[in-house]
Design a binder for these strands. Structure first.
Ligand code: MN
Ligand code: MN
Ligand code: ZN
Ligand code: ZN
Lengths: 142, 142
DNA sequence: AACGATATTGAGAATTATTCGCGACAGCCG
DNA sequence: CGGCTGTCGCGAATAATTCTCAATATCGTT
């Protein structure tokens, strides 16, 4: 549980909402969760944590690099545990199934492109959209 | 002005709001415009077009492939004329300056990645974020 | 262990971006 | 010209997220 140390290192007090939100991510079968989803899971376990607090905590944990934020198809943001290894996403347009990948060639080329414009690259967001094998099969007949 | 034909081909009537919205994009110095921005430009030229209509028209023109929609840093969507050639974006975190690029290597690799997961790739969204030369210089001192 | 300065929380109001619902109106085929 | 319908403008309604503020919890210090 050295996550509590991470909180302190980020200048954040170790509070129940922060601990519980982290627990939700650690014990979730779905890696990517929206604020609403986190809120509902907390509610389900009688942790009386307000939605506003969930939003605040998610933002703080992201700033502390303990969570990573993503806005896939836009609309709502989703968060996931930041385990150090960067990755991008491949999402099914039908069922929402999400795959994670890291392609060194793409990562490298991004730097090259940024440099060619004289930019100092700081971040990037890449999401691929398509149909997963299952959904592709279904829509073949439909 | 064969854009009017494009409208008809998309099953859309040729109406003033649709014509004016297209004009705004054709005559704008900034390529990427949000609904609000389009709305204000129309208001500035006494075209009394409602904001809801602007949103509706932007959506329709995108469905007709005459405009392309992007949601960079999330928050609000921006549209641009769709001139056929696909491109991705490199955006300055400071001033918002936006560069457009198309890297064949990245495009190719995206297909490879999708296929490796058995997905049928349909779309993707890539945005690079960094500091443009000007802003990088400013923050060197600051 | 109790104290107190300060950070944090919960609830609801407020914001921001976008969509809906509806009566009035305008394009378009004939 | 005359409608049948698609469209429009407007204000209300949603959806996601942030803000306000009084009540409360945390944690270094007695
Ligand atoms: Mn992920
Ligand atoms: Mn562009
Ligand atoms: Zn699927
Ligand atoms: Zn800049």
């Amino acid at each position: 549980m050295h996550e509590l140390e991470d909180l302190k290192d980020a200048g954040l007090k170790v509070t129940l909402p922060r601990i519980k939100v982290l627990e939700v991510f650690r014990s979730a079968k779905t890696r990517h969760l929206s604020a609403e989803e986190v809120y509902h899971r907390l509610a389900a376990q009688q942790a009386d944590i307000g939605l506003a607090t969930v939003y605040r905590v998610l933002t703080q944990l992201e700033e502390a690099s303990m969570l990573a934020r993503n806005t896939f198809n836009a609309g709502k943001a989703v968060y996931e545990l930041n385990e150090g290894k960067h990755h991008d996403h491949l999402i099914c347009l039908d069922c929402g199934r999400t795959e994670e990948f890291n392609d060194p060639t793409i990562e490298k080329r991004q730097k090259v492109v940024a440099e060619s414009f004289g930019y100092a690259l700081r971040d990037h967001q890449l999401a691929l959209y398509g149909y997963c094998p299952d959904c592709a099969a279904k829509r073949a007949k439909g």
